[in-house]
Design a binder for these strands. Structure first.
Lengths: 339, 339
DNA sequence: GGGCGGCGCCCAATCGATTGGGTAGCCCGA
DNA sequence: TCGGGCTACCCAATCGATTGGGCGCCGCCC
């Protein structure tokens, strides 16, 4: 009685037996790419097959299929942490696009640690994923060249790396937008909460900002750029360091919204108000930014679209094409924190 | 390296051929459960097998294995959205625990939509997952009874549902903690931003709060409880509704940190300061809470642990055991917003 | 009426691992 | 000397789907 409830899945053979035909015929019919099904069956047989399949709720066993076809239709996604809203949204884009083309995605957290990253990648490869989307690329790592050497199909997402295909925001441009905005607002003493130096996002946003700033005629002392973690606490600590350093900025650019929120906290601890005593601009325009007590100016990056593009690039890599990095354009949302 | 041949994975047969023994012997050795390997091979052969396997980097093909064993070691996780920090952290717990016992997890977003939820579940079942972890259970849904009828192993996470195994925070207790705290602080007019009425988290936190509140001698008008979305914007809207209703509360309990942040924004729009003119308490104690410009009081729930427990419960369900719901205890973190 | 070209199917190998069921050869005791 | 019991393996079926290669039969053409 127990196994009565656990309905064994319907197989090709089941269908074939009930129809009195051979499993291979059923298979060819259900493939149904009229091209593949080279004269596989008569129209009437095909219809009977399709009807029975629908009636019994046949769904092919993906394990059996991939054993035979050497394709799992699985893809592995590695991110620093899904609890980083930015990566979570990118993953939503990945999942959506992947589902649309019959792929399923594994995600895994590497905590931005090189050893963990390598371990997780090996785990996905052991699962025989068809390809990888790497969202935690380190500028100084040696994992990517190795994957390339082993001919493992992959693309980068979120962070880029010279010489490898990637889907990212045009972070340099994003930094430039902020520089132009703050300069136009009349700020002349600014500081940057720069993020992690191993992440291209942090480096590009920071360099885009400071190069544009200098091009506009501004200057920035060494200590006005503080590298930090990407989270709220990191932003707070960096801001405190800046405020204690004597840079005495009238505006702060944090390369991440959460760091920006931390910075706003640090300002308030010193009795200052973001937007009045010191402008603050963040990055990514997460849903939080517009809804904060003091709405946060932020560079909007198309996060979900980055995820979708990453999947599209990966499918092209899987087809053996050579693909170039894709940069998606950011826009600046100005709000109370810098208006 | 030694793989100048085409990048094909090493198989049992490869090992067997090189060692001059039969694949089944290799298999039994590598299983190596001394019990399973019933006199499978001599100690010296076993060593040779293990050494060659290590040298060639043999890793069993999971597709082939599950085809034969009818076990995929895959588990499916359904959440409303990973961009909800709370679920993202629970998933980190799931992934960690699953990896520890040789399972891999798929996550998928249902956007809290019944149709999407069902579609995603079917997708995971088509992938032949061994079991499901459902993080977006709706109190009024009919999916769970159906899964139960189909004898599909699953457990709930985050939200509970009477009659089904689950790993959740003791949300009723969490609500009680807030009621006790606000009462002790001398508040007598309070309001609740209650979340979505189909989520047990929202319902339990709200009822825990209001029942305790009444038990303490307090009272609350009908309109002091406003159901809302779980995000920042939902919290803002709910708070605005409360503030416009004439309830005139001195304290707000939002069943979610993000809703609480929205509420703080609404207060500020009316020229009020959270913690001074009106206390605000959130729920989950996300990493943001402590770092906000005005640090937010919040009920800390063991999110990652909930994910880990969910996996442990699921393994017991997979072994055919009957398991009871698990409630994990929350604690209250009092900060400036209600001190 | 014989040959020929399809149509419509069937057959069987294959992917890689697992597992119940052998079976040679050896040791040992009776 | 013979049989029983081990040890240390081998054999082959199996999981479900795919796919190259056949093959009988029917209709058509000359």
């Amino acid at each position: 009685m127990d196994n009565h409830t656990s309905e064994r899945a319907v197989t090709l053979k089941d269908l074939a037996r009930q129809l009195g035909i051979h499993p291979s015929t059923v298979s060819r019919v259900l493939h149904s790419d009229p091209v593949v099904a080279r004269g596989a069956a008569s129209e009437s047989t095909a219809r009977r097959v399709r009807e029975l399949a629908a009636e019994l709720g046949y769904s092919p066993d993906p394990q059996a299929t991939s054993l035979r076809t050497r394709r799992t239709h699985l893809l592995g996604v590695v991110v620093p942490r899904l609890s980083d809203l930015v990566l979570a949204i990118m993953y939503e884009g990945v999942e959506q696009e992947a589902a649309g083309i019959g792929y399923s995605a594994f995600v895994t957290n590497s905590r931005d640690d090189a050893g963990e990253q390598r371990r997780k990648v090996e785990l996905m490869l052991a699962r025989r994923v068809d390809g990888l989307i790497i969202g935690d690329s380190h500028l100084d790592g040696d994992l990517l060249p190795e994957l390339h050497r082993r001919a493992i199909p992959f693309v980068l997402m979120n962070r880029r790396h010279p010489g490898f295909p990637s889907a990212t925001c045009d972070d340099v441009r994003g930094g430039e937008l902020v520089a132009e905005h703050l300069w136009a607002q009349g700020h002349r003493k600014v500081a940057v909460i720069a993020g992690e130096p191993y992440a291209s996002t942090a480096v590009d946003r920071t360099s885009g900002f400071s190069e544009r700033w200098r091009a506009l005629g501004g200057s920035m002392p060494e200590e006005a750029i503080v590298w930090s973690r990407f989270d709220t606490q990191g932003g707070r600590e960096a801001a405190e360091k800046i405020l204690a350093s004597g840079v005495d900025p009238t505006a702060l650019f944090a390369v991440n919204d959460f760091a920006a929120i931390g910075a706003m906290g640090a300002l308030r601890s010193r009795g200052m108000t973001a937007g009045q005593d010191c402008a603050v601009v963040g990055f990514n325009d997460t849903s939080l930014a517009a809804e904060l007590p003091i709405p946060l100016s932020s560079v909007r990056s198309p996060m979900a679209e980055i995820g979708r593009v990453a999947v599209r690039l990966l499918t092209r890599v899987l087809r053996g094409e050579t693909v170039e990095p894709v940069l998606l354009q950011p826009t600046l949302q100005v709000r109370e924190s810098s208006a």
